[in-house]
């Protein structure tokens, strides 16, 4: 099957589902897919490709999956129309932190697979800024792992947002409420 090509990414963590077949899902190293996108990405297409890869895991795709898509709001914290959000990152450190956070969260919850896609650069209102998906044996671990990882990304992965409104940019200190 041919899937639409993805925009070029800043980093791709190779997917490596070749764990020994005799290990249980909980014992296997989590299957991680992390990517930073400098251009707009289509989250549903990304999920579809990821699900094909999950199906190729030993034992097939896990039974439960949680997914989160975050999009850029059309207004800033003051209610003014937002032109764009600019996302700065620390090349090298950001990718390593996401991989580490995803691996830790997956191990804590016994999740089998984690996908994290994150935008960098200039992001327009309505565009996806983050995609987090977790596959696990049951809905509880899948949802809890996804929630925990999303919060960790907001506070522990080096990204900085600047809101652009009426031609003026303003760095955001901190995160929006849960």
């Amino acid at each position: 099957m041919n899937w639409p090509s993805c925009p070029r990414s800043a980093v791709v963590e190779p997917l490596s589902p070749q764990e020994p077949a005799q290990e249980s899902a909980a014992e296997r190293a989590p299957f991680l897919a992390v990517r930073l996108h400098p251009e707009a990405f289509a989250p549903l297409e990304g999920l579809a490709r990821w699900q094909v890869q999950l199906a190729a895991l030993p034992g097939g795709a896990p039974a439960a999956e949680s997914q989160f898509i975050g999009r850029v709001r059309g207004c800033n914290a003051s209610g003014e129309p937002l032109e764009a959000l600019e996302l700065e990152h620390y090349p090298g450190m950001t990718e390593a932190r996401i991989v580490s956070l995803a691996e830790d969260a997956a191990k804590r919850h016994g999740a089998a697979a984690v996908l994290v896609w994150h935008r960098i650069g200039r992001v327009l209102p309505g565009e996806a800024i983050v995609l987090v998906a977790v596959a696990a044996d049951r809905r509880g671990p899948a949802q809890r792992c996804g929630q925990e990882l999303l919060e960790a990304l907001k506070h522990e992965a080096p990204f900085w947002k600047r809101e652009w409104s009426q031609g003026v940019g303003r760095w955001i200190m901190g995160n929006t409420p849960l």
Binding site: G92, L153, E156, W160
Partner: peptide, 29 residues
């Protein structure tokens, strides 16, 4: 503070060649 990418203490002794970064409050996701 990050030294050679991992977060680090602000009192960690540095060595020649280290990459030191000062990171404002993070706002990702």
């Amino acid at each position: 503070v990050a030294v050679n990418h991992p977060f680090a203490s602000s009192d960690q002794p540095l060595q020649p060649g280290d990459e030191l970064a000062f990171l404002p409050p993070i706002s990702g996701g």
